[in-house]
Amino acid sequence: MDESGAPAIQVDPSELHTHGHIEHSKKVFELNKVSVYYGDSKAVSDVSLDIYHRNITALIGPSGCGKSTLLRSLNRMNDLIPGARVEGEVFYHESNLYDRKVNPVQVRKLIGMVFQKPNPFPKSIYENVAFGPKSLGMKDDMDDIVEQALRDAALWDEVKDRLHTNAYGMSGGQQQRLCIARAIATQPEVILMDEPCSALDPVSTGKIEDLMLELKRNYSIVIVTHNMQQAARVSDMTALLMVELDSDEHNRWGEVIEYDDTNKIFTNPRDPRTDQYVSGRIG
């Protein structure tokens, strides 16, 4: 797969501040040698990178390179998979998410998630948005919370007359925006998006991308995408993961081979494999 034979370049996170036009004022996540295992097999190996506040950070790479696994380790969704295990440290601001004292439920309140396939609850549109705030015991007026979340997700005008109808009556794109509304209704700081547009048509995809650029003003977004154009269009920072094989080719795992400003990744990458991948020659 890797004809060039160049060694994997481990990006030193401190370098990232120096180049690029984006202001990296504040870190949200600081990953330190993060490896994720499913049982005995390693899925993601040794990832160290920083994710910045009010940025869109894209994780790209070929199928099976562990993008989603890495994403799910950022809000402890991997805990739900029996046998999954995270090594290393994931600092969210100052605290390690995998510290023994940390309650995963608290983590997910602050770090929301949108999934690949729209997964609205089998309830009304209103109930879908209100479920999170109700579960967290938010005291504000529920109608206001729902309206604000739907407005922020650019969905309010389309659904304001049918808030109490079943969410399954919506189109796929609307359902996915409902899932985004649902995620921001609990006022998280970060939204993780796992290939949010892969089940959607181009028009809906465009709407979600516009929405992400809008949401970036208030939220930090980490998006996994298999669509390089999408990463190029919306993200500020891009990490490219690749599948690595061990010497006897029995074990395979994902590694971050380059993490940088999106512009740099797509125009002037350091690793030749990045250049080959983004230009469509490998992967």
Binding site: R108, F131, S135, L136
Partner: peptide, 18 residues
């Protein structure tokens, strides 16, 4: 009940009981 419903709920910070 599809796992996606559980995941969606847990991802919002709901407890297992909720």
């Amino acid at each position: 009940v599809p796992p996606s419903i559980r995941e969606g709920s847990l991802a919002l910070g709901a407890t297992q009981w909720q």
